[in-house]
Computed example of a mutant assay.
Amino acid sequence: MTLLAVHLALTAAYAGFQWTVRALVYPQFAEVPPAAFPAYEHAHQRRVTRVVGPLFAGQGVTTLWLLAARPPGAPAAAVVAGAVCLAVVLGITGLLAVPLHRRLDRGFDGAAFARLLRVDTVRALAATAGTLAASWLLLATASG
C-alpha cells in the first residue's frame, strides 16, 4: 500500500507541475523581450530540470516496481495504463519538447513556441491520466 501511495503522490505532483508549466510558465515565454529570450530559455531549462528530474526518476522507479511486482488486488490494466501514460510523457518530452526547447535556445520562434504549447498540452493530459490510473490502483487495493 505504501508503494501505491508514493506512486500516486509522484504522479499527482508531476501532473500538478505539468499543468502549472502549461498554464503559467509557458505563456510567459511570449512576454520576454526578444534580446533576453535565449538567456531566459536557457535558465528555464536548467531550473526546470531540477524539479522534473526527481519526479521522472521517482515515477520510473515506482512504475517499474509495479510492473515487476504488482501488489495483490492491483488491477493489471491500471498498472499498464499508468506505465503507458508515463511512456507517453517521457516520449513526448524527449522526442518533441526537448528539441523544441533547444530550438528556442537560439531565440524566440513563434512556430516552435506554438508547437511547444500543443505538445505540452498532450503531456499534461497524459500526466493527468497517469494520476487517474494511480488513483485507481490505490482505491482498488484499499477496497480489495
Score class of each variant (00 low, 15 high):
L8H: 01
L10N: 00
W19P: 02
A23S: 15
V32Y: 07
A39F: 06
F17C: 09
F29C: 05
A39D: 12
F37I: 06
F17R: 09
F37N: 08
H7S: 14
Q18A: 10
T20H: 09
P34L: 08
E31F: 08
Q18S: 09
A15L: 00
A36H: 14
P33K: 04
L24T: 02
Q18Y: 00
A23M: 11
A35D: 15
L24G: 14
E31S: 10
V6Q: 08
Y26C: 00
A30E: 07
V21R: 12
V6W: 15
R22M: 05
E31K: 15
F37Y: 13
Y40S: 15
P34T: 08
F29R: 02
E31V: 11
V32K: 05
L4E: 05
A39N: 03
H7A: 04
A35H: 12
P34V: 07
V6E: 14
Y26Q: 00
W19G: 03
P38E: 05
A39M: 04
P27W: 13
A13F: 01
W19T: 03
V21E: 14
L8Y: 03
P27Q: 06
T11Q: 08
P38F: 03
F29D: 05
W19D: 05
H7M: 12
F29K: 04
L10I: 01
Y40F: 06
P38M: 13
A12F: 11
A39P: 05
V25P: 03
A35L: 09
P38K: 08
T11I: 06
V32L: 03
A35I: 02
E31H: 15
A36M: 13
A15P: 00
Y26H: 06
Q18F: 00
V25I: 12
L3E: 12
V6A: 06
T11P: 14
L10H: 00
Y40N: 15
A15M: 01
P38H: 12
F17Y: 11
A15Q: 01
Y14C: 03
R22P: 03
T11N: 07
V32D: 08
V25T: 09
P27N: 13
P34I: 07
Y26F: 10
L24H: 11
W19F: 10
F17K: 14
Q28L: 14
L4W: 01
Y14S: 02
A15R: 00
A30Q: 08
Y14F: 11
A5F: 10
Y26M: 02
A39C: 12
